[in-house]
């Protein structure tokens, strides 16, 4: 078992399932001979042929729309969007069709498909190559939003996404495509969707983050540990549907929660998580749910992107505010 990167884990999962499932096809821009601009489909066309690994014309809405047609006739399409920043022309097909076909036909037709897209900032890319708009997708009924944060989870969750009978958008944190290596067995074993992963146990505060932002979050937890603060770190992995029960289980221990995400704060996933905690676990809270997020600004060009992205320093500061917070009624 060799150590592989996150992007290699994606390739490995695609290859495993292409081999196992003749209904599966992979397509997108430059995914063929070029193997994708991030090489996520490296070697797949050579191995599985041009009939199953196809370059599409340069049209994102096409990628989303043909996947619907393929899926309703029994294929398992996996479409790649080159960058999340270019996905918006495809929103109509995702929102109006892929996620509604099962409901609209009362189960007669369904869309077992996966849309993959590299997402997030921190790679010094040009404009429109660094956004993280997962909350836009989490708002869409009928969709699953999945974000892997390690090679093992990329492999296992992508397999689960492809095998899932409903549409999944699989957002790959491109900043950590090649920065972490991990041993991943190419066994075809999927990881569960709709479940949180507890990455670090702790009793003082619950930190919730996903994708690349887990790197900073885990570093912040290390730093806090040196000060005697034990943070529990949770990766929801499936942002929708959200496994709020695992988060509440953690709050039973900690009573304090900080949500960290790259995306803008307003109506972001942090707002949803905070609202659900408020609804289902208000009595467990010793402090309001804190958010450490990207600002409600346009994602900057790369010279300023480090100011936009939550840093270890910002996360540690946010955690300390959550820890220091006293209930006004207990202040006397």
């Amino acid at each position: 078992m060799s150590e592989i990167t996150l992007v290699e884990a994606v390739t490995q999962a695609l290859a495993f399932e292409l081999q196992a499932d003749p209904r599966m096809v992979v397509f997108g821009q430059d995914v063929g001979a070029n193997g994708g601009v991030f090489r996520a489909t490296e070697g797949l066309q050579q191995r599985f042929g041009r009939e199953r690994v196809l370059d599409t014309p340069l049209a994102e809405n096409t990628i989303a729309g043909i996947a619907v047609g393929m899926a309703v006739q029994g294929l398992h399409p996996v479409g790649e969007f080159q960058f999340m920043g270019f996905i918006y022309p495809a929103l109509d097909q995702i929102l109006s069709h892929a996620t509604r076909m099962r409901n609209r036909t009362r189960g007669r037709l369904s869309c077992p498909l996966v849309y993959r897209a590299p997402y997030g900032g921190g790679i010094h890319a040009p404009e429109h190559h660094s956004e993280s708009t997962e909350a836009l997708f989490a708002h869409i009924p009928g969709l699953r939003v999945v974000v892997p944060s390690s090679p093992a989870r990329a492999y296992g969750l992508l397999l689960a996404a492809i095998r899932d009978p409903d549409p999944v958008i699989f957002l790959e944190p491109k900043r950590i495509y090649r920065t972490i290596k991990q041993q991943v067995a190419d066994s075809g074993t999927a990881l569960p969707l709709d479940h949180c992963f507890v990455l670090r146990e702790g009793r003082d505060v619950t930190l919730i983050a996903w994708g690349a932002m887990l790197q900073e979050t885990l570093s912040a937890a290390e730093q806090l540990a040196q000060e005697g603060i034990e943070a529990e770190v949770i990766d929801p992995a499936t942002l929708k549907p959200l496994d709020i029960h695992s988060i509440i289980d953690s709050l039973e221990k900690t009573g304090r929660c900080v949500v960290i995400h790259e995306a803008a704060r307003f109506a972001g996933m942090g707002a949803e998580i905070a609202a659900q905690i408020g609804e289902f676990a208000f009595d467990l809270l010793k402090a309001p749910v804190w958010r450490v997020t990207g600002y409600d600004t346009v994602m900057p060009y790369y010279q300023l992107e480090d100011f936009y992205l939550p840093s270890v320093t910002r996360i540690v500061a946010g955690v300390k505010e959550a820890l220091d917070w006293d209930h006004p009624r207990s202040r006397g």
């Binding site: 096409t62 729309g65 619907v68 047609g69 899926a71 006739q73 294929l75 097909q93 069709h97």
Partner: peptide, 18 residues
């Protein structure tokens, strides 16, 4: 949604051929 079904039809056509 206007014209969106034509892309579905292209996907269906691909599937039928595949």
């Amino acid at each position: 949604p206007i014209a969106s079904q034509i892309l579905h039809a292209a996907g269906v056509a691909f599937a039928l051929q595949y």
